[in-house]
């Protein structure tokens, strides 16, 4: 079982990195929390019964764990307030990939824990049905929420204001 788990984790390490980046952005303990998520995934692995894709199951457990860590440590990811100028992504393509990434994560970091969970699933191309199942809301409501979060995120990226 351990071998199978490690293989699956290796295949989906990107998901864990993205979740950690979203929830523990610029957090000193990011690596430590990554480890905690990995441990919880391993402990929950016996409950994975191939009823859904492994990545869907992984998202469910990892998102729950990340939110749980924040709640239990009673801490919020450290985010630095940026000026309007810093938020603006210039129209020319001088930005490096890491700059773009940094700005995107900074913007996402302004969302609430639940909004982050919804937006990461949306950005990762999950359909409304899957997102609704992981989050625990109806499909139609998922659409409403995604649109609202997208608008909020675009607004932040455009001018740094919610």
């Amino acid at each position: 079982m351990e071998k199978e788990f490690i293989e699956l984790i290796n295949k989906h390490q990107g998901i864990l990195q993205k979740i950690c980046n979203i929830y523990f952005y610029r957090n000193l303990y990011k690596e430590d929390y990554h480890q905690e998520i990995l441990i919880r995934l391993w402990k929950s692995f016996p409950s994975f019964k191939n009823q859904s894709a492994f990545s869907t199951w992984l998202y469910r457990v990892a998102l729950n764990t990340a939110i749980d860590i924040i709640r239990k440590q009673n801490l919020k990811p450290i985010h630095t307030e940026l000026s309007k100028i810093e938020y603006n992504i210039p129209d020319n393509e001088n930005n490096t990939e890491s700059d773009k990434k940094d700005k995107l994560y900074q913007a996402i970091n302004h969302l609430s824990d639940v909004e982050k969970a919804i937006i990461i699933l949306y950005l990762e191309d999950y359909n409304y049905k899957e997102i609704a199942e992981i989050i625990g809301i109806s499909e139609s409501y998922t659409g409403v929420k995604i649109n609202r979060i997208k608008c909020q995120l675009i607004k932040i990226l455009e001018n740094g204001q919610i």
Binding site: I6, I9, Q17, L38, W42, E97
Partner: peptide, 29 residues
Amino acid sequence: SETHTKTQQNIHDDVNIRKTLKMNHSKTI
């Protein structure tokens, strides 16, 4: 997707994962 094209390299190797799985919790928790 543009900002995540180069992030797929594994930050933990098999040995590290195996070591982590033997733990009950991470250090902070």
